[in-house]
Design a protein around this nucleic acid. Structure first.
Length: 643
RNA sequence: GCUGAUGUAGCUCAGCUGGUAGAGCACGUCCUUGGUAAGGACGAGGUCACGGGUUCAAGUCCCGUCAUCAGCUCCA
């Protein structure tokens, strides 16, 4: 007998060679019916794979992440089988489960191309094959046998994968007429895949390396029930409505025109208002926290960037230098070197530190054309940048302050973030500076993260070339991840720019630099903000807070008075005196997602009152202007989530 | 930059297998002065992304370029 420990901690005895299915049955028939596989000591097991030793066992169903992974991994096999039938000679690369579904990278036979139009065909073949209820059968062979198999099959991709598994037993998975190199962890049979949707087809470099051949990647998702697929599709459609590129146009926040240039967003009046509100909010915080604001030019001498090392390190992603009177200038790709010049402009004493220089600095980077996307990825953007020059002793406290400010920003806007400690990859030579100093910097960052009880993960190889970072990452409406805020430790630039301060010991010392930007880029932050609120900005951010709508032209004058009063009080207000019906005016006010509409007809004019309507909620009834102003004042504070 | 898809009026989109461009909204003028999500009439508006080619004839077919979208690579 062996002992099986279940997730709730209970331990049961089973005979040697029992299966997850037997264990599930012993709990309930329903669980057994819904189980798609099992996690045995952290490894994925098929439901019928014998368990030999005492183990921790978790039964996986489609309702948990492990179950989904097995389901989608198995679905990738099914898609591969369909592709093999439809496009004989296809070579298969890798086909993993991902967060929402799966993909398979394939190398199609010469002359074959798969486009979006072909996807339904493949879908149908998958559904057809699924109905065969084929089981996923695992088998094992020696490394040499496996190698020979794929060498004969002429599949250089699998050969490469097997090379990486030298000396190990190789496992295969076979279902229907398809055999694949596979570690294991499958659903009981193809028949439980009831709903199939192939989502997109795109190119993907083999092994993620742009020097390698580009394969065809097909993304798909499957479900055990059609209803689940319907819900998934509906959710996706809802998400697309939040897309900032769509809302940005509809709400007249920004535009991008080729006449100015791709990736160079133009802020329209309403978008500019939002941006100014965010800047005002942050500037106030910065002053409280001892920052000093500076302004530096948009271009700088190329020598600066040679000193910093950004040029030529990033020369591929910078605009070409501009030659003027025998000197070369760069559109600044970052603000740091300019701030370092301010630091270096006079002798500094330890008494001056920490010196915190802040700038909403606009930088220009040559991003590859295929990368540009709305406000998220652009060629010109403004960082809410600052550089903190401090002593080593002050570093931790300053890091804590910087992280705290970043957290305040996300809290103020109610945004969910994940935190990444971005560390160096020891196997890479892209980093500047002494590895030992890196170790220290990373240790300091980790200590701060622990001290502040950040819920973080470590990203190796995610550091910048001059130092480790704490990055704050959010998702956009369609699930893509973007880095927003960042706090970085830098021992390299003080060396390169020979920054110094006079210590209390009358000796010269190097300061440490913290680079930090809570919003990150104003453009990207606002793109996320638009999607976060689905364009329904809270009152304090809304570019137009209230629209005044006279019912008939007889009330235009009365409404002008209200409009002027609100405007004088500092509210962002619009008035619509057109000879349109009030329904039309309301519709347009709602469509522009303006938080409130003040409506006045003959009745209100005679009583000296107004009627108030809230966006998305409807008529709030008759009020006096005083009541409304009081309410608006209470809503008009940073961090207020009310609309 | 790479792979694939797409590009028609300010916006959203129609335009079947080639036969000389349409709708709704927006815009302008006029009528209408209305009670909580779109009142009516008329009008103006397009080198069908751009450049070549095939054809008697190209928005439609072919090639190239540019841009947008999805993904890959990259991201100080």
């Amino acid at each position: 007998m062996i002992e099986i420990t279940l997730p709730d901690g209970s331990v049961k005895e089973f005979p040697v060679g029992t299966t997850a299915y037997d264990i599930a049955m012993s709990i309930s028939e329903g669980l057994a019916r819904n189980s798609v596989g099992a996690v045995v000591n952290g490894e994925y097991y098929e439901i019928n794979k014998p368990i030999i030793n005492s183990s921790e066992v978790k039964i996986a169903t489609f309702n948990d992440d492990d179950g989904k992974q097995m389901f989608w991994h198995s679905s990738a096999h099914l898609m591969a089988e369909a592709l093999q039938v439809l496009y004989p000679g296809t070579k298969f690369g890798i086909g993993p489960a991902i967060e929402n579904g799966f993909y398979y990278d394939v190398d199609l036979p010469d002359g074959t191309k798969i486009t979006t139009e072909d996807l339904p065909l493949i879908e149908n073949k998958m559904k057809e094959l699924a109905k065969n209820n084929s089981t996923y059968n695992m088998s094992e062979s020696s490394w040499e046998e496996a190698m020979e198999y794929y060498q004969q099959a002429g599949n250089e991709y699998k050969v490469e994968l097997i090379e990486g598994l030298k000396g190990q037993k190789i496992t295969f998975c076979k279902h229907g007429g398809f055999t694949d190199l596979c570690r294991g962890g499958h659903i009981p049979n193809t028949g439980i895949i009831k709903a199939v949707k192939l989502l997109s087809v795109a190119g993907a470099y083999w092994r993620g390396n742009s020097d390698n051949k580009m394969m065809t990647r097909i993304y798909g998702i499957t479900f055990p029930k059609q209803k689940m697929l319907d819900e998934f599709i509906q959710l996706r459609e809802e998400a697309e409505k939040r897309d900032h590129r769509k809302l940005g146009k509809e709400l007249e926040l920004y535009m991008i025109t080729q006449n100015i240039g791709g990736g160079l967003p133009v802020w329209l009046p309403k978008g500019t208002t939002i941006r100014r509100i965010l800047e005002d909010f942050l500037k106030k915080e910065l002053l409280k926290r001892g920052y000093q604001e500076v302004i530096t030019p948009h271009i700088g001498n190329l020598n600066l960037y040679k000193t910093s090392g950004h040029y030529p390190y990033y020369s591929e992603s910078q605009f070409s230098p501009i030659k003027v009177e025998e000197e070369e200038y760069m559109l600044k790709p970052m603000n740091c070197p300019h701030h370092h010049q301010i630091y270096a402009s006079k002798p500094r004493s330890y008494r001056d530190l920490p010196l915190r220089l802040a700038e909403f600095g606009t930088v220009y980077r040559y991003e590859q054309s295929g990368e540009l996307s709305g406000l998220s990825r652009v060629r010109g953007f403004t960082q809410d940048d600052a550089h903190i020059y401090c002593t080593h002793e002050q570093l931790k406290e300053e890091l804590i302050n910087a992280v705290d400010l970043t957290q305040l920003v996300f809290k103020t806007f109610g945004m969910q973030v994940t935190t990444r400690l971005s560390f160096r990859d020891d196997n890479s030579d892209k980093y500047a500076g002494d590895p030992e100093v890196w170790e220290i910097a990373q240790k300091e960052i980790k200590e701060v993260a622990d001290m502040m009880q950040l819920d973080y993960f470590v990203g190796l190889g995610e550091a910048s070339f001059y130092g480790p970072k704490i990055d704050f990452i959010v998702r956009d409406a369609i699930g893509r991840k973007w880095q927003l805020g960042t706090v970085q430790v830098d021992y390299v630039m003080p060396e390169r720019f020979e920054l110094e301060f006079m210590g209390s010991d009358n000796q010269k010392h190097r300061p440490v630099i913290i680079h930090r930007a809570p919003f990150g880029s104003m453009e990207r932050f606002i793109s996320i903000l638009i999607e976060h609120y689905a364009g329904n900005f809270p009152f304090w951010i809304a570019p137009v807070q209230v629209s005044v709508l006279p019912i008939g032209q007889n009330q235009n004058e009365y409404c002008e008075g209200i409009y002027t009063k609100l405007k004088d009080l500092g509210f962002r207000v619009e008035i619509d005196t057109r000879s349109e019906k009030v329904n039309r005016k309301i519709a347009e006010s709602e469509q522009m997602k303006i938080p409130f509409a003040i409506i006045a007809g003959q009745k209100e004019l005679e009583n000296g009152t107004v009627s108030l309507r809230q966006h998305g909620k409807g008529d709030l009834g008759t009020k006096t202007l005083e009541e409304i102003v009081e309410m608006f004042n209470s809503l008009n504070v940073p961090g207020s989530s009310q609309h």
